[in-house]
Amino acid sequence: MRFNSLLAATAAVCSAIATPALAHSQWLLPSTTILSGTGNGVTVDAGASTSPFFADHVAMNLDDVKVWEADGTEGKIDNPARGRYRSTFDVMVDKPGTWKIGVEQSSVSGSFMLDGEMWRVGSMRGRPPMGAGLRPGAPGGEAPGGRPGQGGPGGPPPEGGRGRFDPAHVLATPADIPANATDVKLSERISRNFIFVTADAPTMTVFKPVGKGLEMEPITHPGSLVADEEGQFRFLVDGKPAAGVAVTVVPGGKRFREAEEAQELKTGADGVLHVKWPIPGMYWLSAELDDHHPGDPRAAERRMSYTTTLEVVAP
């Protein structure tokens, strides 16, 4: 029994810390990435599942999906809809060049101790923090010395024996952390998930690095990938070539073959990733990098990810 409860406590902590992206990959699946003329659009499926592009788990939240037109100006999505297993939206690509569509997120999350109890900072798995915010009785609120989580009108009372966290012990942002907090452990997370759609000749404007977090600059343009030619992509961290970045490359359609065909690759010293394509098709590519150079000074570490979907045509 003791072992079991210890295990449960460990599992609770682990699940709070683990990045959900590892278990269920978020993916964007465009109907095509190559268009002739400017009278067309693409329709995009968006979801998260173990195997890329199989809509069998959860739909993606479309609130943060943005469109960058070929010249970098902001575009828009049409017909957004959320289904049970995947969301969907359209983008009319009415100007020539390469467009960028996707999600860019940055957040700081973690935990701290206060009066012997653990608190969390930041939302968990995209859910809005429960009982978050500064309320009377919450730390830093109007009731100095009051025990956090007690007397606060928001949030249910602590439940005994279920994990370490009182659901009321969640703060929205690091700015709310009280001065007498100890063991503050914060990590910054910057994640990107983009697809690229090219009408007529490809352009490079949307790949111009912003110089923050993990980014990708193609050497082989995403609109020019072909199965018998190696794909080359330079990864950058804070605008500089990122060596040793772990990148997973998975072709879609896993159900219709024996092996997963996933490739676990690493960028070279010049930040360049070399990818061979075993088959033509849509590929899910995701790069992860952790370091200790967060942009937010209160965070000790930084977790970065860059995900894209690439269309590789047959020669």
Binding site: T198, D200, V226, V313, P315
Partner: peptide
Amino acid sequence: RSWWRKGGRS
């Protein structure tokens, strides 16, 4: 698709 990539698109 090959012609498109090799020059058709421009």
